[in-house]
């Protein structure tokens, strides 16, 4: 069972985290995304965490590491959809994740990669 879904759209990997991630899932996600960035030559990675009810220090570090490893492969990672209560808790935990690019929504995140991306449905 996979807790994440990845689709590629115009050189950007759209990653949706759909439910609880174990630590192993998080490590696998980092590996898979880094591999995919290289194999498709992605210019960006957008990770939607709006389904996540918590982000603890392990997952926060993993997101930070994903951003680091994709950056070495010339793809920028943007984390979108963090819930306000998650942001409040992360700051109290002592994690402000400097250097991690964020956006409020998937649309805002995509806009950071340049507005040339078409909607993923309604083939035309």
């Amino acid at each position: 069972m996979s807790a994440t879904a990845v689709i590629e759209l115009d050189g950007v990997l759209l990653v949706t985290i759909q439910g609880e991630l174990t630590d192993q899932d998080a490590i696998a996600l980092q590996h898979d995304l880094t591999t995919q960035v290289a194999s498709v030559g992605a210019r960006g990675v957008l990770i939607d965490i709006s389904a996540l009810e918590i982000v603890d220090s392990f997952l926060a570090r993993t997101l930070h590491d994903i951003a680091g490893s994709t950056s070495l492969l010339a793809a920028e990672t943007v984390v979108v959809g963090m819930r306000p209560e998650v942001a409040i808790t992360l700051v109290e935990l002592g994690l402000t994740l400097p250097g991690l690019r964020t956006a409020l929504s998937v649309a805002d995140g995509l806009a950071l990669f340049g507005g040339s991306i078409a909607a993923p449905s309604e083939g035309a």
Binding site: I54, D56, S57, E85, V86, I88, T89, L93
Partner: peptide, 12 residues
């Protein structure tokens, strides 16, 4: 917010 804090602490 309190749910999120307690669950996050529990996870750590």
């Amino acid at each position: 917010v309190d749910q999120t804090k307690v669950v996050t602490a529990a996870s750590e």
